[in-house]
Design a protein around this nucleic acid. Structure first.
Ligand SMILES: [Zn+2]
Ligand SMILES: [Zn+2]
Lengths: 302, 302
DNA sequence: CAGGCATGCCTG
DNA sequence: CAGGCATGCCTG
């Protein structure tokens, strides 16, 4: 018999903090790696080109069935199943030659204590993608695009994907790009139930200078419509800017209730969009910087 | 800009059947790998040495708190959290010099349609174990031991761990070995909610001949006591040896009730395996291409 | 697709 | 540790 002797046993062998990725687990707090993974700015900022983004909500599909994603305009939050092509629509003004600009998209953790960690794909879905003989180029990317032209970036572990701006199609006021998410928010060893933002930056190709920045919270889950409704319910008739009163955990943007509200009158759709965008942006920002206003730190429910 | 052109997009890129491991997913039905993963016998058989196994249930711990595992003798089912050292107790008679025998332990899928797949550790916990600088020897093993002497085997992907028999301690009638499980039954990309058995074989060191065989069903979960109670409740006042009769899903393996079923007669074990492989493969294929086909074997609750 | 369960994990 | 929620997924 060729046994191994051991007085220690293997008890301690892999006690792991399941709050985080196996990788994150072993990055010393102030190591160079941690520095690499510094947090990108996420404040919304239309900039001189009035850069905006929203999710296009397809009305009923042919078969009358709901699309596998749902968007809450009030909360600025997308709910989608994974591997679903979701149409994002960008708007911008006065860009001159659009070809000098591009849009970078990347997932970012929403909560302050995770925002400095790059959003990594979970080991299971990486494996699955690798096995499925497809190009292994994007395997590590949680946020991918189905756009015709694209470029995947991996700055350290901070993955992003870039698409070029194009001249708008005639008679359109937006530029549509399909993105899909390749992990669930719940993926163990990946996002691990942490909330994320999709961060979009309008950048100058040559210099990389950021000319505008927008975000949309994303929840990648199996029942987008259920979860959207659940969030709305949870938020009850929450007052504007009020904190969600979850008994457990969770954030989400409180939709406005209709009585006793301060309102801003707008003139048309476009204006409505712009205004709500700003409002929602502010709401989110507040929730982020003000602990009172929402979530607590680590994982938790979303 | 260094964009890539693609008319295809990445939509199909990693559509994956989440029913199974990424690895299992891409094993051609009749590949050598699939053959390697043939199913071990699991029928209980005390043999000439009256080989038996049970789980020792420690009474209340010092602090009066429950141990992180629970054992249902009636169901022959262990409920345990992962990474918990569970005391298994073996009994046997008339072995002569015990040093000529050893006990092999391995996890095996309980359900017929998975039994031929080796139980693999999930990618997340493999990663976690690798990162935690510990010996990488056991990283792939779901079933590990804390016994002083041990030997890890990887026959293809069929992992097992062997401990030598020893002379019984004076005044004892059992041989206690601590085992621990390093993945949850729910681990995605691993057991993936499939039920497992811990299979113990009493073997002759020299020849490898099996002299006895016992099994205990194991559920590795976060709330062993809750889940044990839930099973008992589900079973009503369950008969001995009965397994949980869930209203939802769970076992599958239709016991040979040959009434009104189309059956394919086969001649032997090997043929049985080959045929079920093909059938299951077809079921999976149909579910993939035809969402209607919700039914069929795979995971299920336990 | 709605209803509902199983189960990891968060809250007291 | 008990209570209970969130969420993937199974059943009609
Ligand atoms: Zn994933
Ligand atoms: Zn695992």
């Amino acid at each position: 018999m060729d046994m191994i002797r051991s007085d220690v046993g293997s008890g301690v062998m892999d006690a792991v903090n399941d709050d985080v990725t196996a990788v994150e687990q072993f990055i010393p707090v102030r190591s160079p790696v941690a520095r690499l993974g510094s947090a990108p700015a996420v404040n919304r900022w239309p900039g001189v080109h009035a850069f905006q983004v929203t999710v296009y909500q397809r009305l009923g599909t042919p078969a009358g069935r709901q699309p596998p994603y749902a968007y809450s305009r009030a909360a600025g939050k997308l709910y989608t199943d994974m591997l679903v092509a979701v149409p994002f629509r960008f708007s911008y003004t006065a860009v001159g030659d659009p070809r000098r600009l591009e849009i970078r998209a990347q997932p970012v953790y929403l909560d302050a204590q995770h925002v400095q960690n790059p959003v990594r794909r979970c080991p299971h879905h990486q494996d699955a993608a690798l096995m499925s003989n497809v190009q292994s180029q994007h395997v590590r990317h949680v946020l991918q695009t189905q756009h015709a032209r694209f470029r995947y970036d991996e700055n350290g572990d901070r993955c992003s994907v870039v698409v070029p701006l194009e001249p708008l199609q005639p008679a359109t006021d937006h530029y549509e790009v399909l993105y899909e998410f390749t992990c669930m928010n719940t993926c163990v060893g990946g996002m691990n139930r942490r909330r994320i933002l999709a961060l979009f930056t309008l950048e100058e190709c040559e210099t990389g200078q950021v000319l505008g920045r927008q975000t949309i919270e994303v929840k990648v889950c199996k029942c987008p419509h259920r979860d959207l409704k659940a969030d709305e319910k949870r938020l009850g008739l929450g007052r504007i800017g009020d904190k969600p009163d979850r008994k457990r955990r969770l954030t989400s943007s409180p939709p406005a209730s209709c009585e006793q509200r301060l309102v801003v009158e707008v003139d048309d759709e476009e204006m409505f969009r712009a205004v709500t965008e700003v409002r929602d942006s502010m709401r989110r920002y507040r929730r982020r910087v003000n602990p009172q206003h929402g979530q607590a730190p680590p994982p938790g429910r979303q």
